[in-house]
Design a binder for these strands. Sequence first.
DNA 1: CGGTATCCTCCTCGATACTG
DNA 2: CAGTATCGAGGAGGATACCG
Lengths: 139, 139
Amino acid sequence: MWATSCGAATEADHRAREILTRVGDKWSVIVLYQLGEDTMRFTELLRTVPGISQRVLAVTLRGLERDGLVSRTVHPVVPPHVDYRLTPLGETLKETVTSLVRWTHEHLDDIDRARESYDETNGGPPRRPAVPDSDLRSR
Amino acid sequence: MWATSCGAATEADHRAREILTRVGDKWSVIVLYQLGEDTMRFTELLRTVPGISQRVLAVTLRGLERDGLVSRTVHPVVPPHVDYRLTPLGETLKETVTSLVRWTHEHLDDIDRARESYDETNGGPPRRPAVPDSDLRSR
DNA sequence: CGGTATCCTCCTCGATACTG
DNA sequence: CAGTATCGAGGAGGATACCG
């Protein structure tokens, strides 16, 4: 229903690609995965997803919330307490996300080996374009 | 096994996130999905994945090939004939990718609605940082 | 046909600092 | 605790041109 022999850029295709961009985004998948395990607070996510910055986590959560995948609950206490959890819609994605993450863990080694052998036959790992040094413009 | 309460940035986690970046990349998922349907030639993919540029398709395929997910077969004829298809490793990802794409199509409307209602309660869709208008340089 | 080579432009992400 | 504001660097991706 998608891979029609004719490659017309339908509206649905365009939208689908847009959504995939969100779902496929670097951090969204991980955050969704974590929330699939349990309801979590902001700082908890910040710790559990090491490497993510405060700002990016905030942006990511906002995006997921806007898409209706994650809900945000503020408990009016002090200090503030905010819970994030999957919405029913988010739950429908849970299995797919889980299998994606699981696949990744199961095949880390395969990919490592594939890359090694690829880099061997071709010359080394993908090289940087080699900065022309004369690129440092006025600052 | 992943969501350990302690959020130490293990090597595996780091690698896993790297792989997710590849798998979750905008175009990779779509290309993998297409190749899941059938073996395809370069130009065929170029048409079937409307919106992708020649360069980006080439880069994407190179990446997938390096990761051992896609194989490239050159038939020494003129004009050149090159086939791309999933490797056995790529096949192991097929189901997950398919369900991801299917989910996307099934929930396009849900997401649209969620965004609308979100944008309604908050002020309009996420705005651009407001281009300082004096940014429109010569074109 | 199936790519590379360049160039250039956003847009994402990270670091840092400040606030309710 | 849970964010927002600001800034700056880098990479992803598009347009275009050319090659085997």
